[in-house]
């Protein structure tokens, strides 16, 4: 599904140039659950953002489903993104003005799904995430665990092929964290490819494979058994 080759990304200020990704090469197959680990500043988030088409690389190749997208403009990337990728963030990033239902509904609105279909699909996914009873609540009225479940529901409602999770349990206690990881595992078992950035060895154990980064380069790959 994903194949990146010699990917490079620099951050420049007037005086300093920082290399975030240094000729990084990796591959993720359809149906995989990959964890990316490494110390702060190793380039995990930069990688995730490029994989999620929120950012573009300075050098190198990024093949997504066989298409070279490294030099796509923002509009093309956005179009590809909204049909293929779901995001889960550490800080949930729900929209405060919208209810649980409306938050989950939003991606469907933007992809032009009809109103009747939207209700059906949102209810389906809320049910799956066991958050249906909270459908008319606002994010501030929910616990962290519940908010992350809503965020996951929002990420999957469009049936993306790929879910990118950026420390999805970082703001949760261990019990809620485990629930979230179980959810992601379920999704993966149903066929969704997942790439997750994490600091937690515990969470990483849910994945099939761990890629460890240091200074923008892969230093080690562990295959989980």
């Amino acid at each position: 599904m994903i194949k990146i080759t010699n990917l490079e990304k620099f951050y420049r200020t007037e005086e300093v140039e920082t290399i975030a990704l240094n000729k990084l090469t990796m591959e993720v197959n359809t149906g995989e659950f990959v964890a990316i680990m490494g110390p702060s500043g190793c380039g995990k988030s930069t990688l995730l953002n490029i994989l999620g088409m929120l950012d573009d690389p300075d050098e190198g190749s990024y093949m997504f489903n066989g298409i070279e997208i490294a030099h796509f403009n923002e509009r093309k990337r956005a179009d590809l993104r909204k049909h293929n990728i779901g995001f889960v963030f550490q800080s949930f990033n729900l929209i405060d003005e919208l209810t649980v239902f409306e938050n989950v509904e939003l991606p469907l609105i933007y992809t032009g799904v009809s109103s009747a279909d939207r209700v059906k699909r949102v209810e389906e996914v809320l049910d799956k995430m066991q958050i249906m009873h909270r459908r008319n609540h606002y994010p501030q009225q929910l616990s962290g665990g519940q908010q992350q479940r809503v965020a996951i529901a929002r990420a999957v409602v469009n049936k993306p092929k790929l879910i990118l999770a950026d420390e999805p349990t970082g703001n949760l206690d261990s019990s809620n964290g485990n629930d979230v990881m179980e959810l992601l595992t379920d999704l993966n078992e149903q066929g969704t490819t997942i790439i997750m950035v994490t600091h937690s060895e515990h969470d990483a154990r849910y994945s099939h494979r761990i890629i460890r980064l240091l200074d923008g380069q892969t230093v080690m790959e562990n295959i989980m058994v």
């Binding site: 956005a78 729900l94 929209i95 991606p107 933007y110």
Partner: peptide
């Protein structure tokens, strides 16, 4: 968030 979710 709206953009990431897919708003153009």
């Amino acid at each position: 968030m709206r953009k990431i979710i897919g708003a153009d």
